[in-house]
Design a protein around this nucleic acid. Structure first.
Lengths: 220, 220
DNA sequence: GCCTGTGAAGCTATTCACAGCT
DNA sequence: AGCTGTGAATAGCTTCACAGGC
């Protein structure tokens, strides 16, 4: 029930922040060897206490005198976030958004890589887009199983999102990144993260209107 | 201090869900006239109590016998979410992601519309992409002020994100939708919503690994 | 002195549970 | 009987504050 690196069941917010810390740490590892929680907090835009709590999750302890050794901390975060071997990803929907996503992730992250794309439109299939081979959706199950894919990205229109999710799950997906503006019905064992552009823009628009009091925040 | 429609200072989560409810309600307004909270909850993938709480924010009351009248509820949500007149949006960064965003929002939402795009690269300027005119970044301030733009979408590389944010704010933006993987430093009066693709994928990957117990959730 | 790690306090968001209505 | 609206309870997340160490 407990495996080697899961101490205390980490929340998705913590995982997200660790991913952000990692990127920031990589940027500043040239200039510095060590940093304190308040420094990383400033870079990430969170509180020092938050940083310390999050770092607890990766099982690394800094020293009160020098803070956190960047190289070692990065190793621990990598070890926590990255899969042991390789975790291939499938993308479904090669429209504008799908292609942008392919381009965005292309060439980074050897372990977490989009290895196959799928589209309903046969014209889009059997092509290579930003280095990724595209297949007709009919081959989804086959190719996912061949590659051992467990992560799917949904970039299809809302109307096709639910069936796509079902197909992904049936073919072995246990995690889905969903760009379609539809709540997906999937088994509770599957983790879904929604990115809903319309909702996000509506929210920004709403709060952009109510010009709030510049009360209690730090702005530096 | 209190304006006509702000009763109780609504959270961004509630605003986001209202946006989602709206989309779902529009889809089913053909078939049904009224619905109960548990029905909308099922469609949206949340609890009935959550739905009722959220609807409180828009100042509409359903009837215990018939539930919520869809048409009227939609009017209230529109009235709550939509700007009184018009709230033009600027996009900065016309790369792959920027173009996908333009295409995604093109032609919907007359009141909340991307009216200008900007790019550093002069080759991309002075063109029209999916119906939106592109300008060189140098004209950002001018055009934002001419159009009365208060919302910016950042789709530039991380290295240019902070300066872009600063330019947007200087030109009158009070809300920013940030796709760059960088924490933005802006005055506390400006609302920022981050969409961080790398972080989201990392999070999905993490939880896709830990195949969780199918314990307490409903899956239908 | 100023840091880390962490129990405890504080906040925010969600859910419970029930009065009131039809 | 079964719904809505909502005070009260709960759960989840963040921050405080301080013991312990350099």
């Amino acid at each position: 029930m407990n495996n080697s690196q899961k101490h205390t069941a980490v929340s998705s917010k913590t995982v997200g922040r660790l991913s952000r810390y990692r990127r920031l740490l990589r940027q500043c590892r040239e200039q510095e060897d060590c940093l304190f929680s308040h420094r990383l907090a400033e870079l990430a835009g969170v509180t020092p206490a938050q940083v310390r709590r999050d770092i607890m999750a990766v099982g690394y302890s800094g020293s009160p005198s020098k803070g956190y050794e960047i190289k070692t901390l990065l190793q621990h975060i990598d070890n926590f976030l990255d899969p042991p071997i390789r975790q291939p990803v499938a993308l479904v929907g090669v429209g504008n958004l799908g292609r942008a996503i392919l381009a965005f992730f292309a060439g980074r992250r050897p372990k977490l890589k989009i290895v196959a794309a799928f589209d309903k439109d046969p014209h889009k299939a059997d092509r290579v887009i930003v280095g990724c081979r595209c297949y007709p959706v009919e081959q989804l199950a086959d190719i996912m199983q061949n590659h051992g894919i467990t992560i799917g990205i949904i970039a299809v229109p809302a109307s096709a999102a639910q069936e796509t999710a079902a197909a992904l799950v049936a073919s072995g997906a246990t995690g889905i990144l969903n760009f379609a503006p539809t709540p997906l019905r999937v088994p509770a064992t599957v983790y879904v993260e929604d990115i809903d552009l319309t909702t996000s823009l509506d929210t920004v628009a709403y709060f952009a209107r109510s010009t709030r009091e510049p009360s209690l925040e730090r702005s530096t």
